[in-house]
Design a protein around this nucleic acid. Structure first.
Lengths: 111, 111
DNA sequence: TCAGCTATGTATAAATA
DNA sequence: TTATTTATACATAGCTG
């Protein structure tokens, strides 16, 4: 876009890199928003600049909801690569949540 | 883009909505990737379609790294006191084991 | 569904103020 | 710097096969 074809590599000039970051970041956030509205999707977008500044977009009030949903979805998978031994439920994250609930329940009793 | 101006509201026609979702999703993922490469940024992008299918992009091998960095940044404190969050190890399985140990310890005390 | 096509609207790199 | 402008490249809505 703009003048000249985009070469896909790190922009070495620091000024240009920052300007481009600023423009493309806002473009990306806008497009994320549009995708949500137009297509009824749920989107979470986290961006860190090279200097560590945080930007984010979330289609829900709480981005953590989407992250949790992501984890449910991700770790519910058969975990082909993860041979750490959750062979029965095949679901480490579910196990984790169950255990957490048990722990908290026991903790309450304890007090 | 394309023929006719985009109206920013949910696309009611289901077929059109799915087609648009597919196209814009790939566009969004591409732009996220480009932002990372061109501007040396770190990006995590999670998308759920309206029917619950998951798509994601991450500039690092493990998207959880970015999520954790986000939490560190967002909630400021490293959350040292809360060993139930996945804040430090960034490793669900490690967390699971730690929690299991705590649970068992508490359980023993209880008896 | 699933790719191409293409006319048109957008995003944005570079220039300018 | 930062904001605005402009020229161009890019993305994509509606089609078509």
């Amino acid at each position: 876009m703009g003048r000249g074809r985009v070469v896909l590599e790190r922009i070495e000039n620091k000024i240009n890199r920052q300007v481009t970051f600023s423009k493309r970041r806002s473009g990306l956030l806008k497009k994320a928003f549009e995708l949500c509205v137009l297509c009824d999707a749920e989107v979470a977008l986290i961006i860190f600049s090279s200097r560590g500044k945080l930007f984010q977009y979330s289609s829900t009030t709480d981005i953590n909801k989407i992250i949790e949903r992501y984890r449910q979805c991700r770790y519910s998978k058969p975990q082909a690569g993860n041979s750490l031994g959750h062979n029965e439920s095949q679901n480490l994250y579910q196990d984790y949540l169950k255990l957490k609930a048990k722990y908290e329940s026991l903790d309450r009793k304890q007090r």
